[in-house]
Design a protein around this nucleic acid. Sequence first.
DNA 1: TTTTTAATTGTCAAAATTACATTTATTTTT
DNA 2: AAAAATAAATGTAATTTTGACAATTAAAAA
Lengths: 235, 235
Amino acid sequence: MTKYNHQTKILIAADCIIFGFDGRQLKLLLVQRALEPEAGKWSLVGGFVQPEESLGQAASRVLHKLTGLSDVYLEELSTFSEPTRDPVERTVSVAYFALIDINKYKQQITTDYHAEWFDLNKFPKLIFDHQEMVEKAKARLRYKAAFHPILFELLPAKFTLPQLQSLYEEVYNIEMDKRNFSRKILSMHLLEKLDEKDKENSKKGAWFYKLNKKKYKANFHSVATIIPNPDIYYS
Amino acid sequence: MTKYNHQTKILIAADCIIFGFDGRQLKLLLVQRALEPEAGKWSLVGGFVQPEESLGQAASRVLHKLTGLSDVYLEELSTFSEPTRDPVERTVSVAYFALIDINKYKQQITTDYHAEWFDLNKFPKLIFDHQEMVEKAKARLRYKAAFHPILFELLPAKFTLPQLQSLYEEVYNIEMDKRNFSRKILSMHLLEKLDEKDKENSKKGAWFYKLNKKKYKANFHSVATIIPNPDIYYS
DNA sequence: TTTTTAATTGTCAAAATTACATTTATTTTT
DNA sequence: AAAAATAAATGTAATTTTGACAATTAAAAA
């Protein structure tokens, strides 16, 4: 069959902005780049798209290689395609952002690769335009989480309302009212109270909740204005 | 400098889903494909990314070529990258959706290329995965317009509230209450009433409004739930 | 037993939303 | 010239949602 002759072919990469939450802070997973140039410098997790895979598959593959994890929340963020963004050779990158439960995959990560979790407010200089990707991913996370219940992806299966609230407060860098927060969250009817308490973090202990997976899937699209003035977080 | 050897390079295209509104219906701009294979079949407006341009520039270029228009609302939708999506040769496409004032560019379009506006609910079979792109763009348009004042991009500089309401009703395929609609829209303080009436569409005539560009730009990020139950329109 | 710490829960006022009908301006008809 | 027809403009009351705010409770530590 005819080919599209005289058209320029370009390298395509998938890069992942991987967010985690350790109970206190939002974290970003970075690796030390293996390839020259800039080998040893910190970079997002990424790789070139292979002949037989889609971009989503490439992102999943790269993510799985690093974390051992398969069912990750993964969402296409946007393309980065400035002709000179990679000084070596033109490469268009498609950025994905991922949300994972940091505790679940801690061990696998650190042993296999030169990977490390960094505080999202203080991480090393990144190669190329990866800094820009992170900024865009942060903005998208804030925007999306203001309307959709995606932050659960960052928590373990069992979590408490105070933990959930801390996560929101960390993502938006705001303080929220406990009473209004729990009313709002519970009114979404996505959570089930367990008859077990988390006694680690307080004397009284806080009730554990878990996601009702059925309702979560069914209501995943639900739009709830969990955050006041979501305007600010537009992306 | 070292190159990334042994990696597969891929063709990259930008395809545009171009929406227009003729006062009654949402329209989609399609062209007859010039290249083989499938020459003569209907397709989205698109083209290959050139060596010295970014994807956004490619989309703008393609759009400008067809419509003569430069300051178009253009937003990256997502990538389409199934390895076999283009039977000729592997091509990753980045889809953009565009909103234009249909009347402004009617003439330029039809003369230069084999381009035509189609009713969004009834348009011909498209090549490759372009149908899927259109569906995704529709969903995105609905989602986005439920929160952000982007539908103005589809109207002429002067428009009436009944016209604007018709547009919303067409996009969401719902009927809205006149009183609540105008209250909601006007409360965004983006519109300025002109002292001129549109006498074309009714005996009494409806006041023309225009966007206050300053406020529009400043409040572009504003989140307003113009549509009840925006949940449904998640994308 | 008292103190300390953090979790849980309720109420009231204000704002936003929804549902709903009448009046007004102008043209068309008689 | 008056009456009828058409579509635009406008207001209000009931309900729901939001935002602000403080007292009580459970358990461990002193």
